[in-house]
């Protein structure tokens, strides 16, 4: 089972994505932003980090990279694609996913273990979860505030296309939470606490937090990230 991982100029987490694919039992395949070949992979991960300096808007120039000219129609045709962090921004800029990402509302970089709720466990990348599962993976971003107009937000909520939502810790539940600057609010100002979304068909998923950093014992806050990759391996087999 071949899972492609695209490297853009500025990608940081492509190696961790490779490792996550391998640990889940798949064969990672390197894809290059400047090459329009998808090398006959069964699914694609757009990794986190940066791309083309993220000038203009995060992901705005990467969206026109040669590899995207092949990937966008393939994704519309059903190829499973996961966008993580910068990859999520690229999928939004490509209009494969609704909405867009802007700077965190608090205007600072964030890096923390983040609790999420799985809202849709029927996509190609989430089928090993159960709807309502609470997971903890890594969040690290500058431009992580998910925004869209009210009509779009209502539409994706109505169609069950919110894939993940940030879990909000109350202000007084414990000492560690009491001193958390994000107690009582989501960590980047995302509208309706949305952390990740899917397209109508469920083959394209994007999220801000990083599942590929939570796949191995001793590294990261949990092993919750592994299920993203085991999910897609099963969905590829069954299709």
């Amino acid at each position: 089972m071949k899972i492609g991982v695209v490297t853009f100029p500025g990608s940081l987490d492509d190696h961790d994505a490779h490792r996550a694919v391998r640990v889940a039992g798949g064969d990672p395949v390197s894809l290059w932003h400047g090459d329009d070949s998808l090398r006959e992979v069964d699914a694609v991960v757009l990794p986190g980090g940066f791309s083309y300096g993220d000038y203009l808007r995060a992901g705005a120039i990467a969206r026109f990279a040669p590899v995207m000219t092949t990937l966008i129609p393939a994704a519309r045709g059903g190829l499973p694609v996961l966008g993580i962090c910068n990859g999520f921004q690229i999928l939004c800029e490509s209009h494969l996913l609704p909405g867009a990402m802007i700077q965190n509302d608090h205007r600072t970089f964030i890096c923390r273990d983040q609790r999420l709720r799985v809202e849709n466990a029927t996509t190609a990348w989430t089928s090993d979860f159960t709807q309502g599962d609470e997971i903890t993976i890594v969040l690290k971003n500058q431009d992580g505030q998910y925004v869209a107009d009210t009509r779009t937000l209502d539409e994706i909520e109505g169609e069950g296309r919110v894939a993940f939502r940030y879990l909000i810790d109350g202000p007084d539940t414990s000492d560690s939470v009491r001193y958390d600057r994000f107690a009582g609010r989501n960590p980047n100002g995302s509208y309706r606490d949305i952390a990740g979304v899917t397209n109508e068909r469920g083959n394209v998923v994007g999220l801000m937090p990083h599942p590929e950093h939570a796949i191995e014992k001793g590294y990261g806050p949990s092993l919750d990230g592994l299920k993203f990759f085991t999910s897609v391996l099963k969905s590829v087999v069954s299709s």
């Binding site: 965190n104 608090h106 505030q145 107009d149 009210t150 100002g189």
Partner: peptide, 13 residues
């Protein structure tokens, strides 16, 4: 320009 209904963190700073 950002649409009016989208928060503008830079402008707020």
């Amino acid at each position: 320009m950002l649409k009016s209904e989208i928060l503008d963190p830079q402008g707020q700073a």
